[in-house]
């Protein structure tokens, strides 16, 4: 564990807490893409198949349970909670994400570290996470102004993988045999997808104005 990875995990945790706060405090999920939440639930379920077979550390196990639990809870809330579900932007959140799921799974069948059930699903989860934010970014552009908590949620979600890139650079420099190309390339793509969001987020912060994404 190094400081970059810890910062990345904490930033990721903060993004989840901000989203839970927004939904719980405002009893609303307006501006949040259910499809991105469902993609993230798939990412965590596919990535943490080793939850019960490989014990790495208490921290690792607890964080996996937190990410799986929170993503499923948010999906449940947005689908079935009688108050929250009414504020879901159903007509704006129309990204056909099964194309993304199919493409990522196909890529994982071709490109993986080892051809085993767990490794293919791990690679699938890495590729899927890289594009999981797309429905959310499309929804933000369609829904015009973005409320603060939603903007912060997306910001932290994007920042966490940027910390992971620093972690991979650090590990590459300090650990003799560390190579993880699948994570690194996907992590770069994932972070690059946030580039324009980060730009408009910075502008809104600098001008102390509402976050506006161009349609």
């Amino acid at each position: 564990m190094n400081i970059f990875r810890l910062a990345g995990d904490m930033t990721h945790l903060i993004s989840v807490l901000v989203l839970l706060l927004k939904i719980y405090a405002t009893k609303s999920c307006s501006g949040i893409s259910l499809k991105t939440q469902e993609l993230y639930a798939m990412v965590f379920l596919a990535r943490y198949l080793d939850l019960f077979s490989d014990f790495i550390s208490l921290y690792n196990t607890v964080m996996k349970l937190v990410f799986i639990g929170s993503s499923l809870a948010i999906v449940w809330c947005m689908r079935y909670h009688r108050v929250v579900r009414r504020s879901y932007d159903r007509e704006l959140d129309t990204f056909r994400y099964w194309i993304l799921v199919g493409a990522c799974f196909t890529l994982a069948l071709v490109l993986h570290e080892k051809f085993s059930f767990q490794e293919v699903f791990w690679a699938f989860s890495i590729y899927l996470e890289a594009v999981a934010i797309l429905p959310q970014l499309v929804l933000l552009q369609r829904s015009g102004n973005v409320d603060n908590l939603t903007g912060q949620y997306v910001f932290f979600l994007g920042a966490y993988r940027a910390f992971y890139i620093l972690n991979w650079i650090y590990r590459y420099l300090t650990e003799p045999r560390f190579t993880r190309w699948i994570s690194c390339v996907s992590g770069l793509v994932q972070t690059a997808l946030y580039a324009d969001f980060f730009y408009y987020y910075f502008i809104s912060w600098k001008n102390n104005a509402k976050l506006q994404l161009p349609a």
Partner: peptide, 10 residues
Amino acid sequence: VITDSAKDEL
């Protein structure tokens, strides 16, 4: 089972 599996990251 404790492993130092390459997948030690979240």
